[in-house]
């Protein structure tokens, strides 16, 4: 009966560990929400930030964060998708692939500060893009790419080989097999990856301080001309995101209500990510059902 007892003990330990982790997480999120939610109100969400008087809001920062996320995904997702498909389907098992994998891992382990400074020197200065949302989005792409690629590759690899064989035996081309069979099957996994990396993009501050900048000039939300500097859609304007705002408020701000702003912003950040997660999950399931025969 010894193995059975070991089994029981091990299961017990695992339950304890899971409980501990959940406790930590619940505590953390609870701490942020309890501290922050009382500070959130309509005024906080819809007014402009103040530099040194109380009562500032986070309207522009919140929008900037979302806009930056969308831009980053637009740039990085197709590239990561292509690279992921390459690694999962085309790459041969040789030293070239090895080098490619290693370099992707290296890219992912770069500290975000370094990515930010690289972006600052290359995009902001050399390419003359200035402190802008686009610079920020490209800088975030740098470190979003490896995570996303890796995840897509793994999701694709976890699709049983049978599916691929079935596709090919039906006379489908490689590309058709990949796009019509393997990718839809791997979609939930890919979406999880996108969500995970979006979370990081959303919370990233260090890489953005030097690329997207730390100021949020007032923009007009009725100006839809993306080439106009005052338009909210203009990707060439500087934009302070929510995470950068939290950092700034905490480190240098002289606003009397800095604490309320930072805890409120943190709570908003968490809530937005929560909404985003649930939404993406819902859409993911929907697409999965639509693209495959699964019910």
């Amino acid at each position: 009966m010894h193995p059975k007892r070991t089994d029981k003990i091990a299961t017990g330990i695992i339950y304890t560990v899971v409980f501990a982790v959940v406790a930590i997480l619940v505590f953390l999120i609870g701490y942020i929400l309890v501290n922050g939610v009382p500070d959130i109100n309509w005024h906080f969400l819809t007014s402009q930030a103040q530099s040194f008087s109380a009562g500032g809001g986070i309207r522009d920062q919140l929008f900037n964060s979302l806009y930056l996320l969308v831009l980053t995904l637009i740039i990085s997702f197709p590239i990561a998708m292509g690279a992921g498909i390459y690694l999962a389907e085309y790459a041969k098992d040789n030293w070239i692939t090895d080098i490619i994998r290693t370099s992707i891992e290296v890219l992912s382990s770069l500290p975000s500060v370094v990515v930010g400074l690289f972006g600052y020197l290359l995009l902001v200065n050399q390419l003359n893009m200035g402190f802008s949302i686009l610079s920020g989005a490209i800088a975030l792409t740098f470190f979003n790419l490896p995570l996303l690629t890796r995840n897509i590759e793994e999701s694709l690899n976890s699709v049983p080989g049978l599916q691929k064989e079935a596709g090919i035996s039906l006379g489908l081309s490689d590309w058709k097999t990949i796009t019509k069979i393997i990718v839809p099957e791997a979609l939930p996994g890919i979406l999880t990856g996108v969500i995970l990396s979006s979370g990081r993009v959303f919370g990233e501050a260090a890489a953005l301080i030097y690329t997207a900048g730390q100021s949020a000039p007032s923009v007009s939300y009725t100006n839809w001309n993306i080439f106009d500097p005052s338009s909210f859609l203009n990707p060439m304007r500087p934009a302070e995101t929510l995470a950068v705002h939290i950092w700034k408020v905490n480190t240098e701000a002289v606003t009397p209500d800095a604490h309320a702003i930072s805890s409120g912003s943190s709570a908003v950040l968490i809530i937005v990510i929560l909404i985003f997660n649930l939404g993406a999950r819902f859409i993911g399931n929907h697409i999965y059902k639509k693209m495959t025969a699964a019910k």
Partner: peptide, 24 residues
């Protein structure tokens, strides 16, 4: 930064054609 930022936004009210970006 906060001082220049605030001054810049006041300044731009009268000089709407000048756009000022302030960064840390």
């Amino acid at each position: 930064q906060p001082l220049v930022e605030k001054a810049a936004s006041n300044f731009q009210k009268d000089n709407s054609k000048i756009s000022i970006t302030v960064q840390g």
